[in-house]
Design a protein around this nucleic acid. Structure first.
Length: 187
DNA sequence: CAGTGGATGCTCT
DNA sequence: GAGCATCCACTGT
């Protein structure tokens, strides 16, 4: 499956299908092990109340990056999905670091590899993503999204860190991973 | 360990 | 003026 095919469909199909893909920015990144789906009928989604200046990218071309500031401090990155105008996206919550570990350690200011990409704010910091990347097209430099050799086993749970529509099971985690943002295990 | 609260800026009410 | 799709440091066991 190509990236274009994957993001063109429903966000609820694309989100679990993204698990196991390798996401790189300028050669730095890793395997996607945790994501969440957000659509326009979802009270927790930025697109719920229709297009605004901030969420404009969510209503544009699929396969682009939607980046927003979270809690005034962090950046969070999403992959826009579905047909143009439907306002859905997949929040990237955690990666298993595989490429450019040294650059990620330097950006994050830690030698604990478990803390490099296990969380949406950490992930963007490790990969150097900021608001300047909002609306950027994925799959072209400096971005790279590589499909896994075979589909990864995926677990489905409730989303994290939201107050509304928190009961929707739209969080997807690679089964058995120790790199997710919750439930870490020793290496 | 678990639980709490502060940092910090922008969007929408 | 409220409320965040978060993270970290600090507290008390």
């Amino acid at each position: 499956m190509t990236l274009a095919e994957l993001v063109a469909g429903s966000v609820h199909d694309a989100a679990p299908a993204l698990i196991g893909w390798t996401f790189l920015v300028d050669g730095v990144g890793g395997r996607i092990v945790e994501v969440e789906a957000y659509d326009a009928d979802d009270a927790a989604s930025h697109s719920f109340r229709g297009p605004t200046q901030r969420n404009a990218v969510m209503f544009g071309q699929p396969g682009r990056l939607y980046v927003y500031r979270s809690y005034g401090i962090h950046w969070c990155a999403n992959v826009v999905c579905g047909p143009v105008g439907n306002g859905s996206a997949v929040l990237l919550r955690a990666l298993e670091p595989t490429h450019g570990l040294d650059r990620m350690r330097a950006r994050r200011g830690t030698d604990d590899d478990r803390l490099l990409c296990s969380g949406p704010g950490r992930l963007t910091q490790a990969l150097g993503l900021t608001g300047t990347h909002d609306g950027a097209e994925l799959g072209v430099p400096p971005f790279e999204l590589v499909a896994p050799d075979r589909a990864a086993p995926v677990e489905r749970t409730t989303r994290i860190g939201i107050t509304r529509a928190a009961d929707h099971d739209w969080r997807y985690v690679e089964k058995g991973t120790s790199w997710s943002s919750r439930g870490r295990r020793a290496a």
